[in-house]
Write a protein that binds this DNA or RNA. Structure first.
Lengths: 235, 235
DNA sequence: ACCTGAACACCGTTCAAGT
DNA sequence: ACCTGAACACCGTTCAAGT
């Protein structure tokens, strides 16, 4: 028993490393959201004191950079398996497939869009992803100048997400009538009330629970891609 | 002198009010960015202790809600002066003018887009703005169903801003060569390097310093509006 | 080289107390 | 009714110290 104290069950003391820190951070953010990712909680999850983390990272911002990098790497690995060789005429299909694949990855890391938006610097993984998009544009017949405008037009949609104006309700839809309390507002917001009355936001599969749903995302994406395709032809 | 102590120079003790708190918060955010807006700093600016604020506001989040509301009200006042009566055929011009006017207001409150995105609830001012957009769509010949899709496609662009993938450099452009250090990356990111080489990001008026510049914003906006106009015709 | 404990300078917020 | 002081429960981070 005393011996057990000095050479006990190995106590799987995996050494800390930047990679282990970052991967744990991703798991934590996936589980509890990015706001629950604190240096103290992260350290605790790793069985260590908060200050130990500063041996692998200079500041918390480095961790945010790092976890975004991990996610974008995951995106890059995913899209590299798509094996698309875009010809002149199906650049749109290739672009669409790439962006929707990126979106699927982001849907497993719901904090990622918000954090990605706060990272000003283009990391290596981000550059690699963008380079792949540019390749599709170029092989699709776009000039680099046109491709540049196109990237701006896509904005965050290039990564598979779009900022919505309203959140997707959050609470149980079952409990809430979308038109509740709007009768009294009918004179102030007649068009909103009328729109809600007509469509009632009732697509049965509109419960992705993220900031936009798949159908609307694809609608906006196709609108932009079609527009770009038309510009390409005009040149 | 002793009298001056008991009934001194009026000491313009403007009473606190929710409106004064919010307006001061906007000024503070305009000056130092949203991250410098703390309850303690805001109270200090008002010549009061931090805890006094909780008589006008239940939590800091209410302040964020409130200052967004003030900004969107400013937008609504601005666009209501546009005096557009969109006909069937220039709905696009009306929409464009409205959105670009909103953008001008947001450019004076650079923190606003980020905060706006975090507000999940559609406030009254936001609803009023959206209702105005829906009116333009409707009078332009869109069904409410089409207008609903259109709003999703616009996303944050409806308010005049778009999330960019990279920040606009930040530092002095004069000190930085956009192609610096990219020669060694030419094999890893050939398309990015080539694109930068060709366009060098050198539009002389691309220094708006916000998350996107005016030309690119309008390009993306027109792309979407043109696409929507085409859909409208197809219906 | 790697990890820690105590401390600092901040947060938002609660609570009981002052006028 | 309005404002305050002290305190609490958190942050990220510095620093000197342990092994």
């Amino acid at each position: 028993m005393a011996a057990a104290q000095t050479s006990p069950i190995p106590e799987p003391r995996i050494p800390l490393s930047k990679e282990r820190v970052l991967k744990t951070a991703v798991v934590l953010a996936d589980q509890g959201g990015i706001e629950t990712l604190t240096m103290r909680k992260l350290a605790q999850e790793l069985g260590v004191e908060a200050m130990s983390l500063y041996h692998y990272v200079a500041k918390k911002d480095d961790i945010l950079d790092g976890i975004v990098e991990l996610v974008v790497r995951e995106i890059n690995e995913t899209v590299s398996n798509l094996n698309l060789s875009p010809g002149l005429d199906d650049w749109k299909r290739a672009m669409r497939a790439r962006i929707l694949a990126a979106r699927q990855v982001l849907l497993t890391h719901r904090w990622a869009p918000d954090v990605l938006e706060t990272r000003t610097s283009g990391s290596l993984e981000v550059m690699e992803y963008v380079d792949g998009l540019l390749r599709i544009f170029k092989e699709g017949g776009f000039s680099y100048d046109a491709a540049h405008h196109a990237m701006h037009a896509l904005g965050s949609r290039a990564f598979g997400f779009a900022q919505e104006l309203f959140e997707p309700d959050g609470e149980d839809d079952s409990e809430r009538d979308p038109t509740a309390g709007l009768e009294d507002m009918a004179d102030r917001f007649p068009h909103i009330v009328e729109m809600l009355a007509q469509i009632s936001h009732n697509d049965p599969d509109s419960t992705l629970g993220w900031c936009d749903d798949q159908t609307e995302f694809e609608f906006g994406l196709d609108l932009i891609l079609d527009g770009l395709d038309r510009l390409r032809g005009a040149r």
